[in-house]
Computed example of a mutant assay.
Amino acid sequence: MQGPPITIRLLLLMLTSVALMTVDHRQNHLDTIRAGLSLVVYPLQYLVDLPSAIAHWASDNLSARTTLVEENQQLHARQLLLEVRLQKLYALEAENARLRELLNSASKVGEQVLIGELLAVDQDPFRRRVLINKGSDDGVFEGQPLLDAYGVLGQVVEVTPFTSSALLITDPSHAIPVQVNRNGLRAIALGTGEAERLEIPHIPNNADIQVGDLLITSGLGRRFPPGYPVATITEFEKDPSQPYARVVAEPAAHLERSREVLLVSRTAEEPSP
């Protein structure tokens, strides 16, 4: 026995579906079935969306990493710039301290003074000379004494209109008359070519000299005004087999560190040497 035609069966199926949807809409009998189906379908939806989610995640992370790298580079460059500026501030602070010491020293000098700055240092290991940014146009003259905030540096030996060359007291060809500040004993301090060493020749073994004595300019020869610190005695060795003792002194001036210098001018009453 044949069943109903296909058209009738489709019509019955549609009517049944409409009836079920109407009943479900009113009484929600299919919610449980729908919930179960959603649990089954969710993993499939997650797998379908996974490539797109991974692409967005990678893009966001790459963009964030690029931004962090750029910010890190900018911060590193700024840090280097600030460190350079900080070093410059340290240098300016040290220069300011040196100038204050120099001005304080200038106020104690009775003669007229001119503040100069070193431009260059002679690289010859057997010479101790410096170039100064003051010349004859500024009143600098040959033989003019050169000081820093701590003592005698040397004297001017060559002058041009805008610069001058000075011979330091440690140059092997330099000699300066000195006296012991404690007792007035006169001597000559000779340069040795070493930065921190002077020799005091022809001192008898029985001379009243002690380690630590301060040597000052004696004013003899009228080249250096009297009373300026020159050096401090560091060695005094007596040799009975020799007529003279071995005497070594350390310069009071900062020969290897001073950048600013004082050029001492003669007073009106002081004759030229």
Results as ranks from 00 to 15, higher is better:
Y228S: 01
H174F: 13
V109T: 15
L114C: 08
T217Q: 13
L92R: 09
L86V: 01
T234N: 01
V84Y: 11
E237P: 00
Q123A: 14
Q112A: 14
E250F: 03
E250L: 02
L220S: 07
T163I: 11
E95T: 13
H56P: 00
A252I: 04
A94H: 02
I6R: 11
P225Q: 04
Q45G: 06
E111N: 15
N28F: 04
L214A: 08
V247F: 06
G110Y: 12
Q210C: 00
V247H: 06
R257S: 07
A120P: 05
G116I: 03
S164H: 03
Q155T: 06
H174I: 05
L81F: 13
F162L: 15
E237C: 00
K108L: 15
H76F: 10
L89N: 06
L13W: 12
V41Y: 06
N28P: 01
A77V: 14
Y150E: 02
E142P: 07
N104R: 11
R98V: 01
T163H: 10
D122Q: 14
P243D: 03
H174Q: 14
N72G: 13
L220W: 06
L102F: 03
P251D: 04
E83T: 04
R65T: 15
D60C: 09
V261Q: 04
G227R: 11
H254N: 03
I132H: 01
T217R: 09
V40L: 15
V152W: 03
L12Q: 10
R100E: 15
D208V: 05
Q155A: 12
G212V: 00
T217K: 10
E158G: 00
P201G: 03
H76I: 08
L190Y: 08
I216Q: 08
G221I: 13
A58G: 00
D137E: 14
D239T: 05
R78G: 02
I188C: 12
I216D: 06
E196V: 00
S105H: 09
S136N: 05
E250H: 02
V41L: 13
S173M: 14
N181P: 10
E93F: 08
Y150N: 04
V23D: 07
A58V: 07
E101V: 10
A77K: 14
D31I: 09
G135I: 11
D137K: 05
L75T: 13
L50M: 10
L118V: 05
P51G: 06
L262S: 05
N72T: 11
F126L: 14
A77P: 05
G143H: 04
L20A: 11
Y244W: 07
A77Y: 15
F141D: 08
K238Y: 04
D49Q: 14
P51K: 01
R186V: 09
L114R: 05
H174K: 13
V140R: 02
A149R: 04
V261D: 01
L92A: 12
Q74L: 11
G36K: 12
A245N: 04
Q73W: 02
Y42I: 13
L92S: 12
A187S: 12
L89F: 06
P226T: 01
T232C: 01
L92H: 07
D148C: 01
